[in-house]
Simulated assay, not measured.
Amino acid sequence: MYRTPRGRLTVTTLSPGQAHTLAARLADLGHRFSGVTADQHTAATFAEAWRRHSGGAAPVRDWWGRLYRLGTLTEPEPLPAGRGRLVGEREHEHLMRWCREFAADVGESVSIDAESWAATRFAEKRYTFWEAPDGTPVAMAGANPLVGGQVRLDPVYTPARHRGRGYGAAVTVEVSRAALAAGAREVVLFTNPANATSNALYQRIGYVPVTDFTGYAFSG
């Protein structure tokens, strides 16, 4: 398990007994969390156990995602014209604008500007643009640092005006290949299970669904 900077607990798969034991122990130690994220069964069991042991209000489900793991990376055919390249320091305003647009698309309530950037989950990632032949960025993908042999891609974003042309798949392949070259044994990402388009896209380029995860927010 680990705790995010925003106080959210992320835990591995636990049996019901393990989830209750962990919740009781953390509550006894005086810990406080803003929520929990785990596979569906673990998250639901821990959230209820936390309510009982912490005396808080009923937890509220606030996130649902499907975990994918890269199998055999497959380049899309046809590959759209253009190339992938790392985002430069002088493009930070452009990057923040696209992160704000991505957050709005997925329903995240977050302030993303020069002052708040370092405290957001979008900081400390390595970003890549896919750019058209004329040099115009048309899609982006971020990669979290390599930890324990694993790299997680997040976010992947194509502005609405550029969608439907394969740019999202192209930049995802570019970033996935870079993660493997950097030594990642696993490359993973989360999708919105309700978005059939993105789920089909990732499967076409070699990502395999693992399981669904759920997040619960705590209060009190």
Rank of each mutant, 00 (worst) to 15 (best):
S109Q: 11
S109D: 05
V110P: 06
S111A: 15
D113A: 13
A114Q: 12
S116T: 15
S116I: 05
S116P: 10
W117C: 10
W117K: 04
A118Y: 02
A119M: 01
A119G: 06
T120S: 08
T120D: 00
T120C: 10
R121C: 13
R121I: 09
R121S: 13
F122S: 08
F122P: 07
A123G: 11
A123C: 03
E124G: 15
E124T: 15
E124M: 14
E124P: 03
K125M: 11
R126L: 14
Y127V: 00
T128E: 01
T128Q: 08
W130Y: 04
E131L: 03
E131T: 07
A132Q: 07
P133S: 04
P133Y: 00
P133A: 11
D134W: 13
D134T: 06
G135D: 04
G135N: 09
T136N: 01
T136Y: 03
A139V: 05
M140P: 02
A141N: 08
A141T: 10
G142K: 08
A143G: 11
N144Y: 03
P145I: 00
L146A: 00
L146W: 00
L146S: 02
V147E: 01
G148Y: 02
G149A: 03
Q150E: 06
Q150L: 10
V151T: 12
V151G: 14
R152H: 09
L153E: 04
L153A: 09
L153W: 05
D154I: 07
V156E: 03
T158K: 14
T158Q: 08
P159G: 10
